[in-house]
């Protein structure tokens, strides 16, 4: 169990303030960024009208998500599509990273996941202000009664908690289960199967859910 709780921290002293960096998460995030850049390089190199394999995969993914954002956002979709697509690819590759030996998912750390949720939250609220105007946006918090204001605010904040802890709980839960089961059985068949199930299957579904919920919150802000 020490594997889960063990932290690898860099403490940096800046003008008398201590900054603690979670080094493991940081390095894993760099690896994820590297993998994505490498894939994009493969996909765009020698791009042609008859697509090669990497280009084909990239185009398929882009088209599927383009259709999805167009459908739920409408005419403004062009400004939100890059955000949704980036979120999906980042979370997907992060979740898959745990399947590689000696690497771990950056999404196992709440410090990665919470800001991702926060980005979607801020974008959705900024959109809401832009579409409705500031006055109607604020007025929305006092509906249906004036007294509901604090509960409405907490209801909005709870969305950030639920979207980020959903991803964190699933990935962290999977990681803990894999470690405990590997220690229990000392078996070469079961842990790789669990790795595949939690990394590939659950990881893909949760990445899709994360991107789609971000999209849904934005589309609700536009259409409500």
């Amino acid at each position: 169990m020490e594997e889960i709780t063990r932290q690898w921290l860099w403490v940096i002293d800046l003008w008398g303030h201590e900054f603690t960096l979670n080094a493991r998460t940081l390095v894993m995030t760099w690896i994820v960024v590297g993998v994505i850049l490498f894939f994009v390089f493969l996909a765009t190199r020698k791009a042609s009208l008859v697509p090669h394999t990497a280009q084909n995969i990239a185009e398929m993914m882009l088209e599927a998500f383009k259709g999805l954002t167009d459908e739920s956002i409408g005419e403004r979709s062009q400004s939100y599509f890059p955000l949704i697509m980036t979120t999906f690819i980042f979370v997907l590759i992060s979740n898959w990273l745990g399947m590689v030996p000696f690497l771990s998912e950056p999404t196992r750390d709440i410090n990665t996941v919470f800001p991702l949720g926060l980005i979607g939250f801020v974008v959705a609220h900024a959109t809401s202000i832009k579409v409705k105007g500031f006055k109607r946006y604020i007025k929305g918090y006092f509906e249906p009664f004036f007294i509901m204001f604090p509960l409405n605010v907490i209801g909005e904040l709870a969305k950030v908690i639920s979207i980020s802890f959903r991803l964190y709980g699933n990935i962290m839960g999977g990681a803990i289960i894999i470690i405990v089961v590997s220690e229990l059985v000392h078996n070469w068949l079961l842990p790789p199967f669990l790795q595949f199930f939690f990394g590939f299957f659950v990881g893909t579904i949760q990445a899709l859910v994360f991107a789609m919920l971000t999209l849904t919150y934005i589309s609700l802000a536009i259409h409500e």
């Binding site: 908690i161 639920s162 959903r166 899709l208 789609m212 849904t216």
Partner: peptide
């Protein structure tokens, strides 16, 4: 599948609050 996933994800938020 998309509608189901969105609906399920929202329906699960109370389980996530319980986890928190």
């Amino acid at each position: 599948v998309r509608t189901m996933l969105t609906g399920q994800a929202v329906a699960q938020s109370t389980a996530i609050y319980a986890l928190v």
